[in-house]
């Protein structure tokens, strides 16, 4: 367990009280502890490794027409990100060095913050992780981070989209409060649509309630 000062806890609490969720049920059987969760997130966008978020790019979309008798007619191709979206690789610019993001011994290698059930409160043990990223972002004005919010599968999908949004807001609020310019941060909630673990138990759920910092 990482040690943090009482002052840190108070600072975090004051930042988070606005966005925090009221209920924080006790840990369920099978849920992973914070330390276990951290041990499993091996940086670089967690289990997916390398570069974080890269796997999501470049998919493209195909749509097809459907006739009344149920047969397909024609198709249209769309390139992912090709139509003026936010994010979409909008980019870590300049000649700055981002290699430390992928260096396992670097403080900014860990990029995942986990949350309790139905909660958007940042737990104190993530202060060091977030402060490392805050330092990184402040040192490198060309760096852009996307905060991707996720939930477990319980509850309705659109409500979970909102809960994931609340989690990214909590992390964003902390980054802003400690001096990261708003222009370096974007947020995107995936709700329950992108589980890190496809299981349907407490263990999987505790891995899925998270915000990933994707550069």
């Amino acid at each position: 367990m990482k040690r943090i000062s009482l002052a840190t806890v108070l600072t975090l609490t004051s930042v988070l009280v606005l966005t925090g969720c009221s209920s924080t049920p006790k840990e369920e059987d099978g849920a992973l502890s914070a330390d276990e969760l951290d041990a499993m997130s091996d940086g670089g966008g967690g289990r997916y490794g390398g570069g974080g978020g890269g796997r999501y790019d470049g998919g493209g979309v195909t749509t097809s027409g459907l006739s009344d008798d149920g047969s397909l007619s024609g198709s249209n191709q769309y390139d992912a990100g090709g139509d003026g979206s936010y994010g979409g690789g909008g980019g870590n610019g300049g000649s700055q060095d981002f290699a430390e993001l992928n260096n396992p011994s670097s403080a900014v290698y860990q990029k995942i913050v986990y949350f309790d059930y139905d909660a958007s409160t940042i737990e104190p043990q993530y202060a060091d992780l977030l402060r490392a990223h805050i330092g990184f972002l402040r040192q490198k004005p060309g760096a852009r981070v996307m905060l991707q919010g996720h939930t477990d599968e319980r509850g309705t999908r659109s409500y979970n989209l909102a809960l994931g949004d609340r989690r990214t807001d909590a992390v964003r609020g902390f980054l802003l409060a400690e001096g990261v310019p708003a222009g370096q941060i974007t947020t995107l909630s995936y709700g329950e649509e992108r589980p890190a673990d496809a299981g349907h138990d407490e263990r999987a759920w505790s891995l899925n309630r998270r915000v990933e910092l994707v550069y």
């Binding site: 249209n76 090709g82 936010y86 995107l188």
Partner: peptide, 29 residues
């Protein structure tokens, strides 16, 4: 969620053509 952006589309069933009707920062759902 294509292109790391949540957007709302309206698609014509017969032709498969679609229009993006909401694509703001944050949730479009």
């Amino acid at each position: 969620f294509e292109g790391r952006q949540a957007s709302i589309y309206v698609q014509d069933l017969a032709s498969g053509r679609r229009q993006r009707v909401a694509s703001h920062q944050g949730i479009n759902g």
